[in-house]
Design a protein around this nucleic acid. Structure first.
Lengths: 255, 255
DNA sequence: CGGCGAATTGACCCGCATCAACTATCGTGG
DNA sequence: CCACGATAGTTGATGCGGGTCAATTCGCCG
């Protein structure tokens, strides 16, 4: 198998583990062949991590960033009383902690929610790349600004949407973000989260998430079961959630 | 008056309207004289805006960013039913929409909460500056990542803190952010917001904000009255809010 | 078949919203 | 100088969305 061989030796081929990242970036701007090669070359071959493992502790000094190649990651914060809040979910093709490039440590932890594969990138390699390709620097800056836009969307959900709309909004967001990297089709997508994970994203309890999921199912909008989201009525779901994909900046523009 | 003259002619002096921005950045990294001059030179003399004016509409194409020189700004989103959610507050020295440099439009509006003075910076001038001073590029990237960290802190508040702790946390955050730019002392700070503005930050109603303010006053932690926050028991307030300034990245480091 | 985490459901409770009335403050014009 | 209107703040009564607690049930794996 070509891909397996390539994964063992980054110089043998095209570092296919960066495919989804490139798919995502090219949705927003053009990347020429030279830039692509530079970007692929600095991402180390992916390492595997089991589910439910903290891979970066809050505050730990960092000299590399994590490109999620496969699986689901969460940025999280644990509270004194044992509650947890997730501030963002990451899907394949996302840098989970690119912001550590400028921050040097994180204000939150990073946790695998499913088994994951992660390709690390050294901050020194990033600096060198940005020097040669400032445009890639701006594109990765864009990526962290996109994360911030997602944070803002979550803030709005948590502040002003009720539980049903909040959950609907999250499922809409994941639908779009997974479509971009080829992991969702219009009917739905795999999502190996527990109801408790969803609760930790939405500022709810798992008990209430369960009831809200039932309501969404009974209203024939979406079904989440057995690790799979099945969208029955996308328009209805978006409307209920007051969802617009504008905040995901899907248009292609020079950045 | 030297300052008044300098404000009329940016080439006459040191563009003092960038002072608080530099104060804030120098808290996190060194900036040499040449970099300082470059940064000051690209910020236009501030323009005045009245309170409660939308200065940037959601979605509008942008070719410049707003440095807040004086006053309070909010990033906001209006909901269908008339509710509003504020996703970040900005104080003097903050860039309110530096992220528009890479995003090209905003996913939210920007609104003055008090009379404001704003110094605009063209995106073309930023590009030119980054080319000569990549370090300043990283520092401003850092600034947008800091905004994202603030977003995450708000997400945690909205998701997992009750109204009392949530309001306490916001007042702690503002205390620190205003101290950095010389607008707060350990006993408190001016804050010309209405209770309704606070409610729109906290995902509450103004009625409940009123009750929570009373509780904080009666517990002798903090008083907010007549546009001024008076902190009676900072340690107690931080403890109640589970507040730690770590997410504001106050340490000085090469970035 | 047994064990264990996740999902499900019901009963009850509480924090915050809602609705409504009233007060305080302040700028404006007669 | 006061009457006023508008906006912000304050307080009480009541209701509801989502939390809490607890008991099953389901699904998967050994």
């Amino acid at each position: 198998m070509m891909t397996a061989a390539a994964e063992r030796d980054p110089f043998a081929g095209a570092a296919p583990w960066a495919d989804r990242l490139l798919m995502k970036l090219r949705q927003r701007d053009d990347i020429d062949a030279e830039e692509e090669a530079a970007l692929r070359s600095i991402i180390e071959p992916p390492q595997a991590y089991p589910a439910r493992r903290v891979i970066i502790e809050e505050g730990e000094p960092l000299e590399r960033s994590a490109l999620l190649v496969e699986g689901l990651l969460a940025r999280f914060k644990d509270m004194r009383d044992g509650q947890q809040q997730i501030s963002e979910l990451h899907v394949a093709g996302d840098f989970a902690d690119l912001h550590s490039f400028t921050l040097k440590r994180l204000d939150h932890g990073i946790l695998t929610l499913t088994p994951c594969r992660i390709g690390w990138v050294g901050h020194d390699a990033l600096i060198a790349m940005f020097e040669r390709f400032p445009h890639l620097g701006r594109l990765l800056w864009f990526s962290t600004n996109l994360d911030a836009a997602i944070h803002r969307a979550w803030t709005v959900s948590l502040g002003r949407r009720d539980a049903v709309a909040r959950l609907a909004h999250l499922l809409c967001e994941l639908q779009v973000r997974l479509e971009i990297v080829g992991l969702a089709d219009p009917t739905g997508y795999p999502l190996a989260l527990t109801q408790n994970d969803l609760a930790n994203c939405l500022g709810l309890t798992s008990v209430h998430v369960n009831r809200v999921l039932r309501e969404l199912r009974e209203r024939e909008l979406v079904t989440f079961r057995g690790g799979h989201v099945t969208i029955a009525d996308r328009a209805g779901l978006c409307d209920l959630a007051e969802f617009s994909a504008d905040y995901l900046f899907l248009e292609k523009r020079p950045r």
